[in-house]
Computed example of a mutant assay.
Amino acid sequence: MKTINILFLISCITISCHSNQTEKEKKTDLVNTQLITKKDSLKGINKKNKNSSQCLCFDGIGSKKGNEPIHTFEFTNGKKIIVCGYLETESEDITISEFNIFDCETEKPLVEYGATRICKIVKKKDTLQINEYTNLPILKNFEWKLVKIGKQTITTKNNQFIISKIVPDLEKFQIDEVVAEKFLKNLKKGQGFGENWETEICFLEVLSLKGNEKAWNILKNYETFIGQETDGAIAETWKDAVSLVEWVKKYK
C-alpha cells in the first residue's frame, strides 16, 4: 500500500512539474512575442518619423546643402521632391528662377533651370508642372509681359519618377494687326540698330511666333537686314529670339 502511495505521489509531482514548465514556456513565448511586436512597432514609428522629417536642399543651381527648400511636394505614393533656388513671387503659383528640383530619397537633381529662365511651379493632381515664361512686348505701346512658352512635368509610376521633356506650350495672345503692319513698314534695311534694339528684336520675335513670315525672315537674317554685326547683349537677345521661334515651330 505504501508502495502504491509513493508511486502515486511521484506521479503527481512529475505531472505538476511538467505542467509548471509548460506554463513557464508559454509565458516566455508570450513575453518574447510582446517584445518582438513592440520592437517591430518601434521600427515602424522610427521609419515613419524618418520619412516625415524635413527634407533640406542639396548643392545645386541656386542652392547650398542645408538650405530651406522653397517648396516640398509629396506624391500619393509617398515620394517627395523639393524645389530649391531663387523665389521671385509666391501666390497661387510659385515663380522662381535658377533652381533645382531634388529627389529627397536619392538627393539627386531631377531637373535644373539656369539664371535666365523664369518658371512657375504648379501641382495638378499627382503631377508637378513647370511652366516656363519669357518677357515679350505684347501689350499696348510695346509694354512687356511674362508669356508662357513651354512646360515640363514630373510624375510617378511604379515608384519611379517620370520626367517629361520640355515642350512648347505657347500662351495665346493677341497683337494689333495695324500696329504690327506699321512696325514692319518702319523697319529699314541697312539702318543699323538704335537705342530700342531690344524691343525691335523681341517684337519681331512676337510676330514670328504669331506666324508672320515677313517678320520671321527679318529676324532670322537680322544682321544682314540691319547691315551691322551684333555682339554682347544684342547678339544674345537676337540668338535667343531665333532659337525660341525655331523651337516652337519645330513642334507645330
Results as ranks from 00 to 15, higher is better:
residue 106 T to V: 02
residue 39 K to T: 13
residue 95 T to G: 04
residue 110 L to G: 03
residue 194 G to W: 05
residue 118 I to C: 05
residue 55 C to Y: 02
residue 67 N to S: 09
residue 31 V to W: 13
residue 120 K to A: 12
residue 188 K to E: 12
residue 15 I to N: 05
residue 140 K to W: 04
residue 179 V to F: 11
residue 94 I to T: 04
residue 22 T to I: 15
residue 139 L to T: 02
residue 167 V to K: 13
residue 21 Q to C: 06
residue 166 I to A: 11
residue 84 C to E: 00
residue 71 H to I: 12
residue 53 S to K: 11
residue 80 K to E: 06
residue 239 K to H: 08
residue 194 G to H: 04
residue 134 T to K: 07
residue 194 G to V: 06
residue 21 Q to K: 14
residue 50 K to R: 11
residue 125 K to S: 15
residue 233 A to I: 13
residue 122 V to I: 15
residue 246 E to T: 10
residue 81 I to M: 01
residue 82 I to H: 10
residue 97 S to V: 03
residue 199 T to H: 00
residue 129 Q to F: 10
residue 10 I to W: 08
residue 110 L to H: 09
residue 222 Y to D: 04
residue 31 V to T: 14
residue 97 S to R: 14
residue 114 G to E: 10
residue 161 F to K: 11
residue 14 T to A: 15
residue 58 F to R: 03
residue 172 K to M: 11
residue 12 C to V: 15
residue 43 K to Q: 13
residue 134 T to N: 12
residue 127 T to Q: 04
residue 179 V to Q: 12
residue 97 S to A: 03
residue 238 W to G: 10
residue 6 I to H: 10
residue 100 N to F: 00
residue 251 Y to F: 14
residue 187 L to H: 06
residue 93 D to M: 00
residue 139 L to I: 02
residue 30 L to E: 12
residue 87 L to E: 09
residue 54 Q to R: 12
residue 22 T to C: 01
residue 248 V to Q: 06
residue 214 K to G: 06
residue 5 N to H: 13
residue 227 G to P: 02
residue 77 N to I: 00
residue 154 I to R: 02
residue 172 K to R: 03
residue 30 L to I: 01
residue 15 I to E: 09
residue 172 K to D: 12
residue 23 E to P: 05
residue 71 H to Q: 13
residue 200 E to K: 08
residue 123 K to Y: 09
residue 66 G to F: 00
residue 149 I to W: 08
residue 236 E to I: 14
residue 152 Q to S: 05
residue 238 W to C: 03
residue 140 K to N: 05
residue 218 I to W: 08
residue 231 D to R: 13
residue 125 K to Q: 14
residue 29 D to M: 14
residue 8 F to E: 14
residue 223 E to G: 10
residue 4 I to K: 12
residue 176 D to P: 09
residue 22 T to D: 13
residue 11 S to L: 12
residue 145 K to W: 00
residue 197 W to T: 07
residue 134 T to C: 12
residue 28 T to M: 15
residue 34 Q to S: 10
residue 72 T to Y: 08
residue 43 K to E: 12
residue 143 E to T: 06
residue 3 T to E: 14
residue 82 I to K: 06
residue 218 I to V: 02
residue 91 S to G: 05
residue 30 L to T: 09
residue 248 V to C: 08
residue 60 G to V: 00
residue 91 S to Q: 10
residue 230 T to M: 11
residue 8 F to Q: 09
residue 8 F to P: 04
residue 214 K to T: 03
residue 22 T to Y: 14
residue 211 G to D: 00
residue 124 K to D: 13
residue 124 K to P: 06
residue 73 F to E: 11
residue 121 I to Q: 09
residue 61 I to G: 08
residue 236 E to T: 15
residue 29 D to A: 15
residue 190 G to R: 04
residue 208 S to H: 05
residue 162 I to T: 11
residue 225 F to H: 03
residue 81 I to Q: 02
residue 136 L to T: 10
residue 145 K to P: 05
residue 111 V to C: 01
residue 5 N to S: 14
residue 187 L to A: 00
residue 249 K to P: 00
residue 33 T to G: 15
residue 175 I to H: 01
residue 215 A to G: 06
residue 176 D to I: 02
residue 244 L to W: 01
residue 10 I to N: 08
residue 48 K to M: 15
residue 88 E to T: 07
residue 81 I to H: 01
residue 19 S to T: 12
